[in-house]
Every structure is written in structure tokens, then in C-alpha cells.
Computed example of a mutant assay.
Amino acid sequence: MAGGLRFTKMHGAGNDFVVLDLRDGAPPPDAAACARIADRHRGVGCDQLLTVEAPRSAGAVASYRIWNADGSVAGQCGNGARCIAAWLVRAGAAPASGAFAIDSPAGRHEVARDAAGGFVIDMGIPDFAPEALPMRGWSAPQAEYALEVDGIVLRFGAVSMGNPHAVVEAADLAHAPVDRLGKALQAHGAFPESVNVGFVEVVAADHLRLRVHERGAGETLACGSGACAAVAVLTRQGRLPAGAPVAVDLPGGRLRIQYDPASGHVRMGGPTAFVFDGTMSGEDQP
């Protein structure tokens, strides 16, 4: 790209992104270029790269796509959705107050504002069908699954939030083997397209602690879709009261999740931050 690659660095609860404005129809970087941009030593550094593009549905203000740090494509990113909403408002492409809609790879999302002026994203309806993840070995949804992983029988819930999630309950989250078991479950043949693995500790009926090992990125400071998945799975298992708002604490900050089984929708609120704007240039420039 002549003149360098202009970008915005953002984060949502520590889950960090490089945002590219491609609303003029410019092509996105290829997978190798995405990985170079995401490199924390030779590039800008991020968990995911987000591209802002023209809307795909009537009435939406824009769409976005997602690439993981390794250059693989992602279908959903809750923290990224909030950052895209904030980016669009700052760019004047979305209203500074009131609701609007954005398109993600997983579909259309309504964006509302909370009392503090932050963003609440309608993350859609969780899909518990094994084929939605996809997950092999089961033909019907189960509240809990069991697989032999790394020499132990690991029990977990599973759901698609537009991207696949396995949710493992942990009694002591601080000492949970997130990296070891996260990688092992991601590599299991039951998940042909890998899976995001969340380890969750139930603190109270309205309070969870969560760590997520994301496919293509490793453990991140926060995962918005993972927080939604944890609340959806635990509600389905009867571990949380249906419809109640839940505070989900991740290493990078707190997200607010509400899953309403009556409507089927999950809504997520949390922080967003602009870190800096810049231009990437030099021989590593895509």
C-alpha cells in the first residue's frame, strides 16, 4: 500500500486489535500479512486484526471481518464488535447516541448504548447443535460432553456464538491448566476446525471468573464471545439463573453478559479503548 498501512490500535478489556479502514473497497491483507501485522516484535502486535468494510445488510452502518494473530479467519469477536462500534462513532460513520447495526462474519448485530455511554452488543442466539461448531461424535446437543484429553477425561459444555466454544468449569481458575488443556482440546479430532476453550469459575449466581485459550491466538486477556458462551452454557446446565445479568471477570477486565433464554439472545457490554493511530511501513509492510 503506497504511503504505508494506516491503522488504529484498540483494545476491549485487554483483548487488543489492529483496525484497518477498507470502506473504500481496498482488499484486505492476506493471511501472511495479517500475521506480520499481529507480530508483537516485528509488527504492530495484536490478538486479532479487524477490517472495517461496507455494510452487507440493509440499514447497517458498516461490516467487519476478523483475522487471528496467526492469519487464520475468525467468525466472531465480541470485544472486537464493541471496538468496531466505538471506531465507527469516532469516524462519524455511526451516531454518537442511540442504536445502530453492524455486520460481522456471523451476521447482523444491534448496538445499543449503556448508561455510562459504552456499547452493548446483541451477540445473537447461541447454537448448541454439535454440527454448528462443528464437533464430531455427537448428533444431538448435550448439556455436558466428555472426552479423553491429555490423559484425563475432560468434561465441558459446547456452543457456537458464530465461532466455536468449549466451556470447562474449574474450581480454582488461577491454577487451571489453561495452556496445556486448551491446546490439547483444540487439537482433538472432535473439533476438526479447532475450538476456543474457556475455563470458568462460578463465584456466585451473578459473577464468573473466566480465562480463554483462543484458537489462532492463545490465551488472551479477554474474550467477549467466550464470556457469552460461558454464560449460555452454564445457564443451560442450570448453574446460573435464567435471564439474570452476570459479571464476567477476565484477566483484562469485566464484561457484562445477559442471556435471555426466552428470546434466545445474548447481550454483552464492556469497555473499549483507543490506544494509538499509526502507519506501518518498511520492508515488512504488506
Rank of each mutant, 00 (worst) to 15 (best):
M1P: 02
R215A: 10
S194R: 15
G43P: 13
S97I: 03
A247I: 04
K183H: 12
R36P: 00
A230R: 05
E219L: 02
H41Q: 15
D260R: 12
H213G: 00
F128W: 05
D249Q: 14
H265P: 00
G3C: 12
L5P: 03
L210N: 04
V275F: 08
S72M: 04
V61E: 11
L88T: 11
L250M: 12
N163E: 04
A166R: 03
H41L: 07
S225F: 03
G189M: 06
C46F: 05
L20P: 00
A184F: 10
A13Y: 12
A204M: 03
G216V: 09
L154M: 11
E169I: 07
Y145W: 04
I84K: 04
A96D: 15
S139D: 15
L49S: 09
V233G: 00
P130N: 06
A247H: 04
V153P: 00
G151I: 05
L133N: 07
A229H: 07
H207A: 15
G198S: 14
P141E: 14
C34D: 12
C34K: 04
G45M: 10
Y64D: 09
I66N: 10
E110N: 09
S72Y: 06
F17A: 07
V202T: 13
A187D: 13
P29A: 06
G80Q: 12
A33C: 07
S281R: 14
R211G: 02
V178S: 01
G264F: 09
G80W: 11
E193S: 11
P29W: 02
T220R: 13
R236Q: 13
R65M: 00
T272P: 00
I102M: 15
I84S: 01
D277G: 05
G43V: 08
R6F: 08
F7R: 01
D24N: 14
S104W: 08
W87C: 08
V18G: 07
G124H: 05
H41S: 11
R239N: 02
A132I: 01
G238P: 12
G157L: 07
A146F: 00
V248D: 07
Q285V: 12
L221D: 13
D179I: 06
T51E: 14
F7Q: 01
D260C: 12
A143T: 10
L173M: 11
Q285P: 00
A273E: 15
A247N: 01
A13Q: 10
G238E: 12
R267W: 09
Q76Y: 01
